[in-house]
């Protein structure tokens, strides 16, 4: 996982400067897209929510704290909220059409690319499902570490909890998961080392 942490002032600058933002976006677009694709199976929705994550990042650059983790941890923290908000909305079945109206157009190639990505993340879904059974606090840490590939410290930063707390919750989550029939799979996300 990308391990950079720019200074807080720099993040505000990045989110105000289109050129600096481009570099940031190119670095993170794929991992955020995959984060969303693990949780949402509609290509349009994956695209929409990924866009929303970056929009939220632009609007909340002030919330970025370099001492609390990498850029990815920060983005995944935002992505969690965006996806959770969408899931709550979907559960209430509110204004589905409203969203479709504001949707950016995707051509068949785009949809194919998104479906590939959704497909590629399919392996994560059983684990997500198993994790979904856990108590909420454990689930959050387990998702970010086991499924999204953050370190415990990064997950703690994304969730704004102490590292020790995250570690305890993860341990409990793993213990519960081991009692599940298909035990704890290996992390699904293969982390890209510095290359």
């Amino acid at each position: 996982m990308q391990d950079t942490a720019v200074e807080a002032g720099d993040m505000r600058r990045i989110m105000r400067d289109p050129e600096a933002f481009e570099v940031f976006y190119r670095k993170h677009a794929e991992s955020v897209g995959r984060f969303v694709a693990r949780r949402v199976t509609d290509p349009h929705m994956v695209d929409d929510l990924t866009t929303e994550v970056f929009l939220a990042a632009i609007d909340t650059a002030r919330t970025y704290r370099p001492d609390r983790g990498s850029e990815v941890a920060w983005l995944f923290g935002i992505a969690r909220n965006v996806v959770a908000t969408e899931q709550r909305r979907a559960a209430r079945e509110l204004s589905k059409n409203g969203r479709a109206a504001g949707r950016r157009s995707l051509d068949p190639d785009d949809i194919a690319r998104l479906e590939e990505r959704i497909d590629a993340e399919r392996a994560a879904r059983p684990l997500l499902k198993a994790v979904a059974e856990l108590p909420k606090s454990q689930r959050a840490v387990a998702e970010l570490v086991d499924i999204d590939g953050l370190s415990v410290a990064e997950a703690a930063a994304a969730l704004r909890i102490r590292v020790g707390t995250a570690r305890v919750r993860l341990h409990r989550a793993h213990r519960s998961l081991r009692q599940e029939p298909d035990a704890l799979p290996e992390p699904v996300v293969t982390l890209k080392g510095a290359s």
Binding site: M15, R16, D17, P18, F21, E22, Y25, R26, A29, E30, G33, D47, T50, T51, F54, L55, I58, R104, L106, D107, D109, D110, R113, L114
Partner: peptide, 14 residues
């Protein structure tokens, strides 16, 4: 391609 287009939109937003 859709990610490039999204980038253009986001930059315009900024």
């Amino acid at each position: 391609a859709f990610e490039e287009r999204r980038l253009v939109e986001l930059k315009e937003h900024i």
